[in-house]
Amino acid sequence: MTQWSALTDLCEPPRFSSANLREKISMNNRIKDAFASKQNLLNMYFTAGYPSLHDTLPLAQALVAAGADILEIGMPFSDPLADGPVIQRSSSAALANGMNLPVLFGQLQELRAAVPETPVLLMGYLNPVLQFGMEAFLKQAAEVGIDGLILPDLPLDEYEEMYHPLFQQYGVKAVFLVTPQTSEARIRRLDALSDAFLYLVSGPGTTGGTTLPDVEAQQEYFQRIAAMNLKNPRLIGFGIADKSGFDHACAHADGAIIGSALIRALGDTDDAPATATRFVQGIKA
């Protein structure tokens, strides 16, 4: 069971490979800067290694050039429980293309040269990260300039007890999901533990799913959270597909996250960056 003991043995402080990394970490406040300087932020999700293995960086560049304010790069997993069919298919395709964490970190070496200012998050599932090693993962992420991490199946208790100090030491911000069923006490706990933004899931369902059919209930949910005076800004995600969805989300939060709709568009194109550019222009128009 050696693999687990390596993960749970967190008493040792991280050893930085270089002064260089330490410097990168202390400068790492791109998420805060973005929320301080802009309104109605558009966070674009795409799956690393999709539609083809080497699309990751060209897509990042195209999305930012067209106006995306934050990037969320999906690390494909074989069994993505929180994802709907569109992202499931892109994940399977990316894995078939040969994407994995070492390949992704290799591609991300050029990330900061490609998009110097933009906050970039990684989103994925806990198991591949644990097999890579949580500390090794955070260290690599920090080295390539990743700002935040979304791991929907990392339980809050485990995060708080085992990983929070490690995230802080490497300057990677944890982003937590909030749903219409999340209690107020729990939202406050998530808010206290995070230093990035809260990810408001628009309604019941997996990514790409429709929003709450009950518009009033959804309104009530967004307003309830807006009224909580949380320290973190809020982005709304899941099921937002177009400009009207984006504008609606912006009326209730600091911006929105769009993923499945872009992935769907990328599924029918030969020129992924051009498609991504058109997609973002359509939202930001």
Partner: peptide, 20 residues
């Protein structure tokens, strides 16, 4: 090997990259 499947940390069949 140890890993996470269906919400539980247990033994599971996976590749070196943690794909089931």
């Amino acid at each position: 090997t140890p890993g996470i499947i269906h919400g539980s940390r247990t033994l599971l069949m996976q590749d070196e990259h943690g794909q089931i």
